[in-house]
Design a protein around this nucleic acid. Structure first.
Lengths: 197, 197
DNA sequence: TACAGACTAACAAACGTTAGTTAGTTAATC
DNA sequence: GATTAACTAACTAACGTTTGTTAGTCTGTA
């Protein structure tokens, strides 16, 4: 139990640090210090740095989807399900940069086996539920394109929130959920409704 | 001239490597080897690793915008200008991963001064031209949101092209420019046209 | 002769990791 | 209930390697 507890604490700390700095910029000593221990102690819990990183990815990625899937399978009209989903995803994106940054780092790394894990183990169920909702709203739509587009909008709008302030027309108001949620909902819905049925 | 030539060669090589591996995973010896020289020789051209990295960013980012801006300022209908712009940006994204990956890495790093450089020196002019086109098509639209959304779609769709194959509904066909260009054009246009004038 | 730009050799610091030790806890024995 | 053995999980010390970088040297060109 102490074992498990320490392990969880290491994973949580490592997640924050890996997300912020990336695999190579982060040393085992950094992680250990943040966990209030010494680097060699980490090896009592994880074989090596790679294994700790993989465990961190699984730890973070497995937490995200359940709430999203629940939201897509509730018993309300499809369009409202989609709006709820987008709102929740936005809140998750804004609430913690850990998932978002780790995800984007994985996209950059382009490691085939890890991309496959990401797609099959982490995203597959959510995507399929989302496809159903898209098709329910408009059976002629392209659910894969819509899903990927929505992910792009979600990840980019929140990741670029610091950049936004320096871009023309960017303001603090546009970083807020109150602004981003309805805007993203509308761009997706507009596309769904515009495609001829 | 040899000086300038070598410098350019180093920058081009460094750009490819920094884009692929990131700042920390890449050593001066790696860069030197790829340039067919020894690491200390790099210091004849750049003060240190940081300066080489900054020079690389400037080298890469300054090449991208001119063609895009030209495309937005030609003398054709606004809607066609926008379509041409999106098509060209897609081709740039697909043609080389260097710009795309370096840009995303900068978004991850969240370094305020470099984000500011990115926004003001690299993207500002393109964004402003793009805003004009958006407003020409629909004066009631939100050009900042549209610009950011378009960037999100462009970066994500091309960066996630490897991931796409493992996602439900993903296929090689959907990685192609023939598929992505019109799809992205349409999602933006639909949103532009849907906003009440 | 001067100088740019390549080189070799070498530095200190930081890296991931291992070995060996120690303190605290649990379980079984007397 | 006390004693011992076994185990967990922390520690210190240290390893070999790689890192960014500097100093000093050689070579070709102007």
């Amino acid at each position: 139990m102490t074992e498990n507890n320490t392990q969880q604490r290491i994973l949580q700390t490592a997640a924050e640090l890996f997300a912020a700095k990336g695999f190579d910029a982060l040393s085992m000593r950094d992680i250990a210090t943040a966990c209030e221990m010494k680097a060699p102690s980490l090896y009592n819990h994880f074989k090596d740095k790679q294994e700790l990183y993989h465990a961190t990815l699984q730890f973070v990625f497995s937490q995200q989807s359940p709430a999203l899937i629940d939201c897509l399978q509730s018993d309300i009209p499809a369009q409202q399900k989609l709006n709820d989903f987008i709102a929740l995803a936005c809140r998750q994106m804004a609430g913690s940069m850990i998932f978002r940054q780790l995800f984007i780092r994985e996209l950059l790394e382009q490691d085939e086996s890890r991309l496959q894990f990401l797609a099959k183990e982490v995203m597959n169920d959510t995507c399929k539920s989302l496809h159903s909702v898209f098709l329910e709203i408009n059976p002629k739509c392209d659910p894969h394109f819509l899903t990927t587009s929505l992910m792009g909008l979600l990840f980019f709008h929140f990741q670029a929130n610091s950049l936004r302030l320096y871009l023309p027309g960017g303001s603090e108001k546009m970083q807020s959920l109150d602004y981003l949620i309805p805007s993203i909902q509308q761009i997706i819905l507009n596309h769904l409704n515009a495609t001829a049925i």
